[in-house]
Nucleic acid binder design. Sequence first.
DNA 1: CTTAGTAATTGGAACGTTCCAATTCCGTCA
DNA 2: TGACGGAATTGGAACGTTCCAATTACTAAG
Lengths: 353, 353
Amino acid sequence: MNWEVIVAKERVTVIDIARAAGVSKSTVSLVLQGSSLVNEATRAKVNAAIRELGYVYNRSAANLRQSKSKIIGIVVNDLTNSFFAELAVGVDAVVQSAGFVQFLANTSEKIERQREVIASMREHGVSGLIISPARGTEASDLAPLVESGIPVVLVVRDITGAGVSSLTSDNHAGAVAAVRHLIERGHRRIAFLGGFADTAVFKSRVRGHRDALLEAGLGPQNELVIGSAPSRAGGVTAIEQAMMLKERPTAALCFNDAVAFGVCDGLRARRLEPGADFAVIGFDDVIEAKTAVPALTTVSVDPQGMGEHAAELLLKQIKAGRAEPEAIVSSVRLVVRQSCGAAAERRMKEVSS
Amino acid sequence: MNWEVIVAKERVTVIDIARAAGVSKSTVSLVLQGSSLVNEATRAKVNAAIRELGYVYNRSAANLRQSKSKIIGIVVNDLTNSFFAELAVGVDAVVQSAGFVQFLANTSEKIERQREVIASMREHGVSGLIISPARGTEASDLAPLVESGIPVVLVVRDITGAGVSSLTSDNHAGAVAAVRHLIERGHRRIAFLGGFADTAVFKSRVRGHRDALLEAGLGPQNELVIGSAPSRAGGVTAIEQAMMLKERPTAALCFNDAVAFGVCDGLRARRLEPGADFAVIGFDDVIEAKTAVPALTTVSVDPQGMGEHAAELLLKQIKAGRAEPEAIVSSVRLVVRQSCGAAAERRMKEVSS
DNA sequence: CTTAGTAATTGGAACGTTCCAATTCCGTCA
DNA sequence: TGACGGAATTGGAACGTTCCAATTACTAAG
């Protein structure tokens, strides 16, 4: 017993601190929580001991006791898309300054993986979840989650009947504004390029496209709606397809900025200069949109701001306990830059040649 | 008091399952862990009860008992940069399939925030950490972390003296290869554009640039090394600055792909076509590099692969307990696409005009 | 029919915190 | 001097799991 060597770095606990500071573990706990009940002098003593011994708080133990954590989960469908990366950054910012930490998971649009990560997050006791659902997610997929009473905020894509709050952008209005702008500039054949046709976001943007066209008496132009993967590569193929048409478009509203960049690429590959020879409008307003050449005209959705907003909404619900679900659709505005700058007549020539 | 309503859904625990299945809690625990000790029939009974009652595993409790978690943390300095987003995706992929879940935090290059998130992750008991350190991080910032014995893998940026494993790319060799390629194509004045001069990554890439130049007897060309923010916008300003020089470059190696895209933008703004009139080489090989127009010649670092590699390294260390730190520098290769395709003579004309 | 050996199951302690009710301390007032 | 009251502190139970040693059930061998 005389040579009992304590070499293994035992975890230092609140009890060790208590012993070192000459108080009880309860007092230490109080200090840890910043309670006003504890005397200034003891608080100092305790804090000193904490620094001294290199104590690190054990949240697992705390969570267990009070059955609530300081974790929020965020699951996105495609982190590779900078729209979602920025969204995550926005969430992270507000969530961190509220003292929470974020679990981030990427589903790559796979429902199965989404199921797994949501389950895993529940096991970790997240106090709330921000979800940008994978393609094809149904209300029933979310049912067990919402029944458990965990606050959930859906972003970007709403799911009807899920019974949770959602934060989407006004896709219809954005598309209408963009197409109207193109019409004002004299365009008559305006394509809608990119995106998966089975998503709600796609549908409402296409609806906006069609409504603006009809409003101007230009007919629905369904043949100019060309889906593709919502990526840069998808944009290239979409514009190629569009240019094979007998009656080519002179302008395009794109499903998102990634597609729009792809469309610009595809245009250049055909020796057409975006902006000068063909008008391109994107959707989202990712950071690169501003600095690209030509600067991208786009419907600004402000992904980072959206992330912040979603996080605030979630935190509000967490604080309030169970809150009535609300569906917020945040307004959107057309940011006119250079990529839609072409005078329509010039393109007319190009097209008729 | 007579109306005491028990509406709050009590958490269902392993004990409830045990009761429902007519076994002991220990057996349920065994089932949960997939132990081979338990009889097939009981296992089925237990699993049925689990589904029946909608049980969700409480990892906080488990962590508390076995003092190890299935969480790994990843902290990146700029999630907005798609290089890091892809890195995170790579990490996520392998970490998830190993049954772990990832905490992701974004430091936005702020040391203070980095300190906070690392502390927070420790409190949550992460079993390992992958860190792409914020600019200016020093070994002493990491000291308490590494002393605690938590496996750490540094990615992208190494920190000398930190005493942990690191995974960086061979920046020097990559830069040498890129510049040699440009020299072979006949270029004589080759700029290095973008990046913060105080980072190790910048320094080794610039060193590669200079060494290749010296090797070919072209002198150090220090005046052609122009720093900037490592972003698209930074690339625009860097190329602008470069083109103000009396003796303009005819080609540039860029700090990263984002800068390279910005350089292309800046070139176009001056009515110069990247690839045709000026050779541009990037660094990193982000996904957009392939589909951009012109497709970007770049030093391929494969961020996603790097993330996967880092995750594997970390998992290995976690499994092995305390392992000897190893410094891996992964090799890198020049992917020649179109943006460096200009014949040098053509550009010579341009420059002398 | 016993015994040994393996397979399956089990109760209780432990993990590190928080919460509650109880206690101590100390100055003030009658 | 004693009673009072607020401020500060405290011991023990509880949270939901895992681990350990111990027990029971079953099978095959003697």
